[in-house]
Design a protein around this nucleic acid. Structure first.
Length: 574
RNA sequence: UGGCCCUUCGUCUAAUGGCAAGACCCCGGCCUUUGGAGCCGGUAAUCCAGGUUCGAAUCCUGGAGGGCCAACCA
């Protein structure tokens, strides 16, 4: 097995079927040991987590086997491709940590080559110009249960076809007047092979070619040739292109590309619970205002995920965990949450913030006293240095949910007469509950502290089981906190829709809850936007890269912490 | 005249004719100044029926179930 690169030896025993194929190809010398992949997005939207799987696969495989991966824009449709999408995709791929070096390609640079091959196909009698209307072509193509029939233009002579093709290219005809079709078999059981369209007339401005071109190639004609032009060895695409493999090989044969040549292999696209990854539908979410934009933190786009505070490492970890197979599958969102927490746990410094405010007065603490606590930024089990000064004073804010007047047995937090640890500070006891006489609402807790418990357990050995977070009232900074949750309220937004409904009916009305003001400890004041934290006991947050500024803080919740108390509490109620 | 692909714990993925394994979820326990993290343990699967074989998740046949294909999208 010495043919397998040294950097591969550390890989685990088992390989997915794509890597198995690559290793076979390397071992047998099919491409002289060469591995060349490509990531070929159509620049008609923003990249999303599903693309990340393909990016990790194509760039990852190239890295692992000492090969190359091209970035190639499949910009063959002038009506949808834009420079904005081209630019955002490069930002996103780089952010994920991949590099195409000098291998940036555009299918639109190959239009001349596609056209020259088209003339060749016409001369060889393997393609013809069809002047039928779109509806007629559809009619004559048949259905999955009925064969198609040849149309009246199918037997034009090569000379006639060549003349028409040249005039198509010269712009003599309007959109739809003619198309170039492969001459294969209208009765083929594979619909893709029923004389597929190769070139169509489209008088549209192309974002790169302007108005200099008007015969644009179809996917089935272009994609295999793009791969061949770039001398790709392994062309990976998603499962729904399985039927297209036959035309992929037909076109390569027809223009005379000899093996060993690019081969298409299909793998399962990523599907994630509680979201959608269809570009068409993501565009609707943006255009119809269901979200604030492509980078809305609820979006499964790379831009949205990034703004939510997810790290590229977490995305790549998810892709590793998910693996590659040829079976359709949906990934449990919990797996993504795990990957995010697993990365952020050792990366994000801890801070304290309070979302739902309840005032606590330490009655036996002097009014003018302030202690500055040197609080470590990471727990013992995270091997990182760092601390910040935390002010402690007589008046504090704690989380309203950390107090219960009539608590259940396992509630280890504040209740009348009970003791609790203030994180990094004293143990306090709740002596008195101040309520609004009218409404009964709890307005304030009056507590006393044990002055011996700063950095120490109670001297008399009594156990204090709960620890809660807090901020010092005079020192805390106001902030807007955006609590993001899953975009849809059901795992598969497409399933079980009632008559007349579409996926938007399943949008989660609580996918964004804004807390304003929340209060955050002062140590975050001077951090730049885009800084990630764990607000202890609440979750991982990032200061919003767009809207947060010193003096006007905005935090996005990336993901909540695992909450085993919620399970216990829910069970108690059930 | 239909064709092609797929089917292993709840979920995702291994096992490539030889002990059905790992991860996430879930459930216990330990630990804990985060009801976090970590550690230990547990529940849990080869779609069905035949066949080949000493031996089948794996090969063969037939079912069942799921997916894709009838854009001048990709």
């Amino acid at each position: 097995m010495s043919e397998i690169p040294a950097n591969d030896r550390a890989r685990p025993e088992s390989r997915d079927f794509l890597r198995t194929k690559i290793e076979t190809d390397i071992r047998t010398g099919k491409y002289g040991g060469r591995v060349a992949t490509r990531f070929p997005p159509e620049p008609n939207g923003y990249l999303h987590i599903g693309h990340a799987k393909s990016i990790c696969l194509n760039f990852g495989v190239a890295e692992e086997y000492g090969g190359t991966c091209n970035l190639r824009y499949d910009d063959t449709n002038p009506d949808t491709a834009t420079q904005e999408f081209v630019d955002s995709m490069q930002t996103d791929i780089r952010w994920l940590g991949f590099d195409w070096e000098d291998r940036l390609y555009f299918a639109s640079d190959y239009f001349e080559q596609f056209y020259d091959w088209a003339e060749q196909l016409v001369r060889d009698g393997r393609a013809y110009v069809d002047s039928s209307s779109e509806a007629e072509i559809r009619e004559l193509r048949g259905t999955v249960n009925e064969p198609g029939r040849p149309g009246p233009y199918r037997d034009r002579t090569p000379d006639e076809n060549l003349d028409l093709l040249r005039r198509m290219k010269a712009g003599e005809f309007p959109n739809g007047a003619h198309v170039l079709r492969a001459k294969i078999d209208l009765a083929d059981p594979n619909m893709v092979m029923r004389d597929p369209l190769l070139l169509r007339i489209r008088h549209s401005s192309h974002y790169r070619r302007g108005d200099d071109w008007c015969v644009y190639p179809m996917y089935d004609y272009a994609h295999c040739l793009e791969d061949a032009i770039e001398d790709i060895t392994h062309s990976f695409c998603t499962l729904e292109f399985r039927n297209n493999r036959e035309i992929y090989d037909w076109v390569l044969d027809a223009v005379g590309i000899e093996p060993p040549r690019t081969e298409q292999t299909e793998f399962a696209r990523l599907e994630l619970d509680y979201t959608i990854l269809s570009k068409r539908k993501l565009i609707r979410l943006v255009n119809e205002g269901h979200v604030a934009g492509w980078d809305d933190p609820r979006m499964p786009t790379i831009a949205g995920i990034r703004r939510r505070g997810v790290t590229p490492e977490a995305v790549r970890a998810l892709c590793d965990m998910v693996g590659v197979a040829d079976v359709n599958s949906r990934i449990d969102i919990a797996k993504f949450d795990y990957a995010i927490r697993d990365d952020l746990n050792w990366r994000a410094p801890r801070r304290l913030a309070v979302l739902d405010l309840l005032k606590v007065v330490i009655t036996d603490y002097p009014e003018d006293r302030v202690e500055w606590i040197d609080a470590p930024s990471f727990p013992r089990d995270v091997d990182k240095e760092g601390s910040r000064p935390m002010p402690f004073s007589r008046e504090l804010w704690v989380e309203r949910s950390d107090f219960m007047e009539d608590p259940p047995r396992k509630f280890h937090r504040l209740a009348p007469g009970s003791e609790v640890r203030l994180r990094h500070a004293y143990v306090i006891r709740c002596d008195e509950v101040v309520k609004d006489p009218e409404t009964g609402e709890v307005l304030e807790l009056r507590c006393s502290h044990d002055p011996e418990t700063m950095g120490a357990n109670p001297a008399d050995g009594r156990k204090v089981r709960g620890t809660i977070h807090w901020v010092s009232a005079p020192h805390a900074l106001p902030a807007e906190v955006r609590l993001y949750d899953r975009l849809f309220s059901v795992p598969d937004p497409e399933a079980d829709l009632e008559e007349g409904q579409d996926f938007t009916a399943n949008l989660n009305p609580e996918s964004l809850v804004i807390v304003n003001p929340a209060l955050v400890e002062p140590a975050v004041a001077d951090d730049p936007p885009g800084t990630r934290y764990q607000f202890e006991r609440l979750g991982y947050f990032i200061s919003d890269p767009v809207d947060s500024a010193p003096g006007s803080l905005v935090f996005n919740r990336t993901v909540a912490l695992r909450d085993s108390w919620a399970k216990i509490a829910a069970r108690g109620r059930g």
